[in-house]
Computed example of a mutant assay.
Amino acid sequence: MAADDRLEDDELARRLRDAHRRVRMLPTDDKARSARRYLAICDLAKRDPERALARLDAFLAVLDEAFPATSDTPRDEENTLGD
């Protein structure tokens, strides 16, 4: 099976990238455990994308609960909305 066979899994790939960004932004104490869990999901995605998507949903739910998503770009006081 070639890697190109999974190009239709855009949704999974996009969500894995988003999860990677979130894990990367975690505090150091929580990053290692979350990174291991994320890598296990990535490994599973190679063999069983449907199951990986289910595990990714659960993983993101835990991240949402423990670390509510915030913007990674701080807004300066002089900037107005839309700048």
Results as ranks from 00 to 15, higher is better:
L16G: 04
A52D: 05
N79M: 11
D9P: 00
R47M: 14
K31V: 03
R24A: 14
D4H: 07
R36S: 15
R24G: 12
D72W: 02
D29I: 13
V62N: 09
D64R: 06
A40I: 15
D9T: 10
K46A: 14
A45P: 00
E50S: 15
T73M: 11
D57W: 08
R36N: 08
P74V: 04
D43Q: 10
D64H: 02
A66D: 08
D9E: 10
M25V: 07
A45V: 07
D10M: 13
E11P: 00
L16T: 01
T28G: 01
D72E: 06
S34E: 12
A61Q: 11
E78I: 10
G82N: 10
A35S: 14
E50R: 14
E77L: 10
L39I: 08
L16C: 02
P27K: 00
N79I: 13
L63G: 00
A54N: 15
D29L: 11
A19C: 04
D5W: 13
A2V: 08
D48W: 13
E8S: 14
D4E: 06
E11Q: 09
F67P: 04
G82A: 09
L12M: 10
L16F: 01
D30E: 15
R33Y: 10
R51K: 15
A52T: 04
E50P: 00
D64S: 08
K46T: 15
A66R: 15
T28I: 14
A13S: 14
G82P: 06
D48V: 00
F59C: 03
A52I: 01
M25N: 10
A52K: 07
R51E: 06
K31C: 04
R47E: 10
R14D: 07
R37C: 12
R33S: 15
A54W: 12
R17I: 09
A13V: 09
D43F: 02
D18N: 06
L60C: 08
A45C: 08
K31R: 01
R17M: 12
A35F: 09
D64L: 05
T73F: 14
A3P: 00
K46R: 15
A54Y: 12
V62T: 13
P68V: 01
H20Y: 11
D43R: 09
D4I: 05
R17L: 11
S71M: 02
D30F: 08
R14S: 05
R22H: 04
A52R: 07
F67V: 01
A19N: 06
F59R: 02
D30T: 14
D9N: 11
A40C: 15
R37P: 10
R51G: 04
L26E: 00
A58H: 14
D9A: 12
Y38W: 09
D57N: 13
R22I: 02
T73S: 04
T80H: 08
Y38P: 02
A61M: 05
A58W: 06
V62M: 11
D30I: 00
G82R: 06
